[in-house]
Design a protein around this nucleic acid. Structure first.
Lengths: 341, 341
DNA sequence: AAAATAGATGTAGGCGCCTACATCATTTGA
DNA sequence: TCAAATGATGTAGGCGCCTACATCTATTTT
């Protein structure tokens, strides 16, 4: 018990240098993979470092001009499967690159967005990923004023002045609607999400697909939800109470689609026999519902990964112009839709 | 456009000092709320700092002996509502205290737990919160060797040498089982989670409650799940296929309970008319199922908050002996159970 | 009013590491 | 074989901030 060495953190680069009989500069070179170190010296240093349990002090390293290996992530919260998937991708990619993740939530200091961002920029993190659906224009302005690398995930900067990753929301929703039409549905309802860029795109695609097939767009078939399960539930109750209820419901995200399924069942109807349901996102839960949910897969995890790549790219080549990366969505056909008659 | 000032980060304490006509030491004192600064000097410094947009450089501050305001959080992943709730609590409490959160996942460098922890300890974070259900003994050993403050969340260190927060798993499960018994159920099944400390406690409590009421514990009524929705589903199918199926199913967490509900419905039976279902955790989704899930609420968010408090307490008073905080669970009665006959 | 005391501010050095430059050792070329 | 080139390592100074100590100023004491 008393034999256990308290490791605390007093092992500095000097300790290693002394023990290895070299200067601290050499040790530093070894740990930064600089070229000019003799192989045996490097090995000796590494061995000593290992023995002493040396771990570089990040603060000092950063202060001295070395790059931090911390990047920030700004999100509204972690409460959705959507966010979890994106973050999983981010974490995966970041760990490959040897970076750490500092989590910032918009909940905090939301009092002053500008100063919060500035705070972040001056903090330890060395770049910022933003997954902020309700990204205000203000954020964007401050961001572009700051000389600070960042990437928008699932969000687009219309001014084309930011690096960003998103997916083909329009195409995905178009495909899904087309699919329903091909199944013979004519009475297709759509439940919207919060009016964000991505969300609006889905609605537009829904309309476009209908129009293209010469199907009248009925206002009463467009219900406004807010991405929550209960809103999907409530709106479905309303839709099905119409004198001429829809035979298919397309929800702007999976969570609402689950609410839709609940409501339909609640009304004593069967999915897909009586009503076909389509979601959007393909969160893990989508494949565990009964019946399994047909949905538009958004490559969330990959979006996280690509976001990281874009950020690291900026860190390496600060002068590259902003890029926008749009990943393909994919219609995942499962069991919640049925061809009509 | 070209007028926009690039804020980057060159505003140092010296810039402020010069502009305010004082020395850097004074500026430092101001920002560290030291006593010996004349009121007007302080004010002048603050004004200048504000004007220049000065934000302290964390690295330098930490290096020079100031405390970091970053604490680490080690988790296996963010994919569960359970984790999201805990993290929400952590985030909330941390933001109150002005701390930042660095996210570490066990996915990473899991190759060597010891060195990973050591890495963390030598990194920027200044204390560690662990929400690691599958916490290995190894982690604990390394942790206690390190002179590094940490808190275990929803996990217990049997050796009583760690700060920790958990909840009354045993009591919660006992209450739930008692509730079912009082409703007249005798054939009560239990679906276990992964065999963790917390999970085992729930099973034990289930058994204890049955025994206490003189109800025989039937092996075939104890199904082993793994906390996943599909395991809840599968195990329920098995349970209901017994020649003498249960009239109530108690799942060790809500996610499995949702799987249970799916399965029961799938079998054409009604909840709660044919089968009563109880979960554990009270994740947000529990109140949006149909029928709404009766469950044992675990104060997840509060556990996160208390975990932070315990950690900050350690930072402030490094010599306090380890404490274990156990928060109360609560039976939340909703609509998924029905008294029998 | 001079001396003692307390308060305000400046000075200097260091936290651990990095890197430009200097220095010394080794290899290559003529 | 000796100079030039190349490679390996050490030296010095600084990154931005903190703090013990020194210095100077405003109060208080006698």
């Amino acid at each position: 018990m008393s034999e256990r060495k308290k490791i605390s953190q007093p092992v500095t680069i000097y300790d290693v240098a002394r023990e290895a009989g070299v200067s601290d500069a050499t040790v530093s070179r070894v740990f930064n993979n600089k070229n000019n170190v003799r192989a045996e010296t490097r090995e000796r240093v590494l061995k000593v470092a290992e023995k002493l349990g040396y771990v570089a002090n990040l603060q000092a390293r950063m202060l001295a001009g070395g790059k931090s290996n911390i990047i920030g992530l700004l999100v509204p919260g972690l409460d959705t499967a959507y966010m979890a998937a994106i973050i999983r991708g981010i974490d995966l990619e970041l760990s490959v690159a040897g970076y750490e993740l500092l989590l910032y939530t918009t909940r905090r200091r939301s009092a002053n967005e500008a100063s919060y961002l500035q705070y972040i920029a001056n903090s330890v993190s060395y770049g910022l990923l933003l997954v902020v659906p309700l990204l205000s224009q203000k954020y964007l302005e401050v961001l572009s004023d700051l000389t600070y690398p960042y990437v928008l995930i699932d969000e687009v900067d219309e001014t084309n002045t930011s690096f960003s990753v998103d997916s083909t929301n329009w195409q995905g929703a178009y495909d899904a609607t087309q699919y329903l039409i091909k199944l013979g549905h004519r009475k297709i309802a759509f439940i919207t999400g919060i009016p964000l860029h991505t969300s609006n795109n889905r609605l537009e695609a829904y309309k476009a697909a209908l129009e293209e097939s010469g199907i009248l767009i009925r206002k009463e078939y467009i219900a406004s939800g807010d991405f929550s399960q209960s809103s999907g539930y409530q709106q479905t109750l309303k839709l099905m109470a119409l004198s001429d209820p829809p035979t298919a419901i397309f929800a702007a995200n999976d969570v609402m689609a689950i609410g839709v399924m609940d409501a339909v069942r609640e009304l004593g109807m069967d999915i897909p026999a009586d009503v076909s349901v389509v979601g959007f996102d393909d969160i893990p839960q989508a494949s565990t519902t009964h019946p399994k949910l047909t949905t538009v897969r958004q490559p969330l995890e990959q979006m996280g990964r690509e976001g990281v790549r874009l950020l690291l790219e900026q860190l390496e080549y600060p002068d590259r112009p902003p890029r926008r990366l749009t990943l393909a969505t994919e219609l995942v056909i499962r069991d919640s839709c049925k061809s009509i008659k």
